[in-house]
């Protein structure tokens, strides 16, 4: 955990330098992957609220319609060469970073521009969003957006909503990923929050922590019994698995099924 925090501090410093030197990011790809507004809401989160209450306040924000694609990320590394796989510092990406691409600046055969980008570290994902004058969603923002179905803002009590997620978990990750935008849009117009990839959140490294006062709470969620105490929504296995996945990762880690999308404050398009 400490290493992650130090890494983040380093990253924040570096990102500030990059932003200062490169000027505002180009925002390329924003047109194809628009930011859709989500109204402020009180959310009953699967994680305990920091203040011990039952719900957390989530302010108005706007989220990208679908996960960031290979094509969008390729455009980003073209304009931000420090994030090419042969140049990105090892402190920020692991050895598998973008390793499925044919070359640092070419997708190659079998990799489609419209597939979601995966094998990106938290640092790289955060840098991408930064360049879009955006950021990664916080867990509660992601959870609020993903609680919706095609008909409801909060479909989490609907067995069909849960089962759809579980069905995706039941599919091994060995096959090729679908293109983005193939699943039905939810009430906000957002797609692929379930059924395509895992997604980074800004606070991924601290999800198992209820607050900063706990000594060892990060460990509690990882094993028997104690895990059940940390999660409030014990029935909601499907959501717990996302939290478990995110908490298994360090910020430089990448996996074959982990991508991301960005959010902005307020409701800028």
């Amino acid at each position: 955990m400490d290493a992650v925090r130090i890494g983040r501090w380093l990253f924040a410093t570096l990102a500030a330098l990059v932003a200062a030197s490169a000027g505002a990011g180009s925002g390329s790809g924003a047109q194809q992957n628009p930011y859709l507004p989500i109204a402020a809401a009180r959310l009953r989160s699967a994680l305990p609220a920091a203040d011990g209450g039952d719900t957390v306040e989530v302010a108005r924000f706007a989220m990208q319609q679908h996960p960031v694609t290979n094509g969008e990320f390729l455009a980003f590394v073209r304009t931000h060469p420090e994030w090419q796989r042969d140049r990105a510092p090892a402190a920020f990406v692991d050895a598998d970073y973008l390793s499925h691409w044919q070359a640092p600046l070419a997708l190659g055969d079998g990799i489609e521009a419209r597939q979601p980008v995966t094998r990106v570290s938290w640092f790289a994902a955060a840098a991408y969003c930064e360049a879009q004058q955006a950021r990664l969603p916080r867990w509660t923002e992601w959870e609020l957006a993903a609680a919706a179905s095609e008909q409801q803002r909060d479909a989490r009590a609907d067995p069909a909503w849960r089962q759809r997620m579980l069905d995706w978990y039941a599919k091994p990750a060995s096959g090729a990923l679908s293109r983005v935008g193939q699943t039905p849009a939810n009430v906000y117009g957002l797609q692929d929050l379930h059924g395509l990839v895992w997604e980074w959140t800004e606070d991924a490294g601290s999800l198992m922590l209820g607050d900063d006062s706990g000594q060892n709470k990060a460990d509690l969620g990882k094993f028997c019994g104690a895990g059940a105490l940390t999660f409030k929504d014990r029935d909601n296995y499907a959501v717990m698995m996302r939290i478990a996945l995110l908490s298994s990762l360090a910020a430089r880690d990448t996996t074959r099924t982990l991508g991301f999308r960005c959010v902005r404050h307020g409701s800028q398009p």
């Binding site: 091994p172 060995s174 028997c224 990762l249 996996t255 074959r256």
Partner: peptide, 21 residues
């Protein structure tokens, strides 16, 4: 590498918190 999930192991033959988990 083609797993979707994180995993761990709790061995009941281990003396220690979480059995290794």
């Amino acid at each position: 590498p083609d797993s979707k999930m994180p995993h761990n192991i709790d061995l009941h033959g281990v003396t220690g918190p979480g059995g290794g988990a």
